[in-house]
């Protein structure tokens, strides 16, 4: 494993992604947070192609977005990125409840992008009867700041793209800024400064802590605290 210098640009290799994904999902699943588990999906290869462990993705399926939020789920680690929008959160939650009793199911796949060298979130949403949700329905599930962002950046925030493995249209969060904010997040990491390296195991936790608020969903405090406590951090 190569070490990452402090001039790290926020990107990871596919091998590092795979490692980070293993740690992230293992700890997440051990905590039994009341959410579905993450699992690594080895992608069934196309005929003629060599299988490598890199051909796959991290998957969490059948997630029902929590509607009551603030007491149970506490944002940890990255307050600065979302706090300013916290006020508007309640309204959305109420809106959802009022709007439909129907609970929406979400599937999340985290896929490594060789182009951007960062994880990319793909997701789809459907009703209990399996009917997929249109973007307008999604907006109602999302917190106000996400809906706002959607209105402003219709084509550059969340769009429909082809799932790289499943060959089907999924929603995706655009990754072109990911490396920059990842770099920013890790710039406060003592491990970067002191030891000249980045704890790759924490990469996905940090990444997810930024991505998940898009859905009004936050990484539980005990999980983040554990990840940040150094128990898992092998600095590489």
């Amino acid at each position: 494993m190569t070490s990452i210098s402090s001039s790290w640009d926020g990107t990871i290799t596919s091998t590092q992604f795979h490692n980070a994904a293993s740690t992230f999902s293992e700890i997440w699943n051990n905590f039994d947070l009341g959410f579905p588990h993450w699992s690594w999906i080895n992608f069934p290869n196309k005929p003629g192609f060599a299988a490598t462990k890199l051909q796959g993705y991290l998957s969490l399926e059948n997630m029902i977005l929590p509607i009551t939020t603030e007491e149970e789920c506490v944002l940890a680690g990255t307050e600065d990125l979302t706090c300013s929008n916290e006020d508007s959160f309640d309204d959305t939650a109420i809106l959802v409840q009022k709007d439909s009793k129907e609970r929406h199911h979400y599937d999340f796949h985290v896929i490594y992008s060789s182009s951007f060298r960062v994880p990319v979130l793909y997701f789809r949403a459907y009703c209990s009867d399996g009917e997929p949700l249109a973007i307008e329905d999604l907006e109602k599930d999302f917190p106000a700041y996400t809906a706002q962002e959607l209105a402003v950046s219709k084509w550059t925030f969340i769009t429909r793209e082809e799932h790289p493995y499943l060959n089907r249209p999924w929603y995706t969060l655009h990754p072109c800024g990911t490396s920059e904010w990842m770099k920013l997040l890790f710039s406060n990491e003592p491990s970067v400064v002191n030891q000249g390296g980045v704890a790759i195991e924490k990469y996905l936790t940090s990444w997810f802590s930024v991505v998940s608020p898009v859905f009004g969903f936050k990484i539980p405090l005990k999980f983040s605290t554990f990840m940040n406590s150094g128990n898992v951090a092998t600095v590489i």
């Binding site: 290869n45 192609f49 060599a50 299988a51 462990k53």
Partner: peptide
């Protein structure tokens, strides 16, 4: 052997 799910290679 390394525990990676695999299919026959070309």
């Amino acid at each position: 052997n390394e525990g990676i799910v695999s299919c026959s290679i070309s």
